[in-house]
Write a protein that binds this DNA or RNA. Structure first.
Lengths: 132, 132
DNA sequence: CTATCTGTTATATGATATTTATAACAGATA
DNA sequence: TATCTGTTATAAATATCATATAACAGATAG
């Protein structure tokens, strides 16, 4: 899995890594049961410290995306990511709130906002070409 | 305008304040040309330091929501908030990206996500009752 | 048995972000 | 002149982010 980090970004790199792994799961590039590189390997691969990777992995574990076995290593949750519950939906709403507020101020129409979301959904859910 | 801060939140309070002012503008509770409390007054009202309010105001100025006059004080941009440009739309897309990714993993359907956005849009754009 | 692989823990350091506290300044205005 | 703006400067406390080294414990491959 290809990881790209922007060290100039104001988004901390442990979060960037987390987002990219989640995106990989969403795109099914990372499948349930699949192994992730060890904290040391991942850290070396992308040129950061192992503790930073460790932080990412633990947050992903906390959210139910992965399992961490002390010796076997890290695997994508074989049962898949836990389904959205009320708490998640509330948290999602709170995250969307300021984005929608600013968009309204800037005259972004509901339709335009919707289209943006749809295009993002498609980016994750569209079938990849496996025929080649 | 009523401001509520959560000091336990991991969202810094200067951002919480920023989001609430933007929400106020979106809801047209704060109208173009309207004054905002001085940094000192606002700080005293909500029980924080004036520099924290100052930081909020400057970020809002940077984004074009407000104007800051050295003596007159702070007013909501009389020309309204600048319209969304390509840069804003890209930034919005980048902000939505991880939210959509996680939602896809958790089985949130596009339709459900859309409904959530619509309900938020309505929260900001619905006409207030001015007949009473 | 030993070397090597896991994640884990501990300790330290440096940089940056957040928030507060005091104080003073400059310009407009009542 | 007193009071109101935002601004600037300095300091300090605290938290977050990221790195660096080192060691530990358990599983496993040779």
């Amino acid at each position: 899995m290809y990881i790209h980090l922007d060290f100039e970004s104001d988004t901390p790199i442990y979060k960037q890594l987390m987002h990219q792994i989640i995106a990989g799961i969403a795109k099914q590039e990372l499948k349930p049961g699949e192994s992730l590189p060890s904290v040391r390997t991942m850290a070396a691969d992308i040129g950061i410290n192992l503790h930073t990777v460790n932080k990412t992995y633990h947050q992903l574990k906390e959210k139910g995306f992965i399992l961490i076995h002390r010796q076997k290593g890290v695997v994508i949750n074989p049962d898949g990511t836990p389904k959205a519950d009320e708490i998640y939906m509330l948290q999602l709403k709170n995250a969307l709130y300021p984005l929608v507020a600013e968009s309204v101020c800037r005259g972004v129409k509901e339709e335009e906002f919707r289209q943006l979301c749809i295009s993002l959904f498609q980016e994750f859910t569209q079938r990849k070409d496996r025929s080649k």
